[in-house]
Design a protein around this nucleic acid. Structure first.
Lengths: 89, 89
DNA sequence: CGGGCCTATCGTATTTTTACGATACACGAT
DNA sequence: ATCGTGTATCGTAAAAATACGATAGGCCCG
């Protein structure tokens, strides 16, 4: 969604423990997952979906439709970008 | 205040454009400044003070009393810590 | 086609954040 | 001691974030 997010935008997306947990998990399992996240976190499905949307809007994760389910994976390039923005502070 | 902040906590502190601007300015002028920030940002003094408090609570800046005024400076170690937390994701 | 599964979105309540003005407080100088 | 300067804090209003249940839509399988 957001093509060139600012440092504040990216940080805001990571400014909630649940979203950090989601990103960490996606990085661990490497390839995508989806409803699994709902099982891992103590949150309702709709809430998790909202967090996923925020991460996706910030470009930190991507979601691809894969049959009946949607598959998310972390965008490592965007993470590198974030790291660079902090370094360039 | 916060001795070992999580990634989410640090990111939340940087999740607002005004606070990023404050940190950037403190890094530019290297040595501390204070009410100057109020002149730079289009915000009321009390609002700036609140943002400073949040940055201070996250450990990203430090404030030292220097005579009648209070002198802020960025904590580069904490910034390095943040970068490492992102790298370690 | 109909049922079941998975996910997004809507509507809503609660909490948190943001922002301001007003006030209080500390300090140096007069 | 009083004044002015520079900050923090209080009180408050408005906006945004968080979380949930309910609902809607897409897709596969029988």
């Amino acid at each position: 969604m957001n093509h060139d997010p600012s440092l504040a935008t990216l940080c805001k997306a990571l400014g909630h423990p649940a979203r950090v947990a989601i990103l960490r998990h996606l990085l661990q399992v490497d390839r995508c997952i989806c409803g699994e996240i709902v099982n891992i976190l103590p949150l309702a499905q709709s809430t998790v979906s909202q967090h996923l949307k925020q991460l996706k809007d910030a470009g930190l994760i991507r979601g691809e439709i894969e049959g009946p389910r949607i598959c998310y994976c972390a965008d490592k390039d965007r993470l590198t970008e974030l790291k660079n923005l902090i370094t360039a502070l």
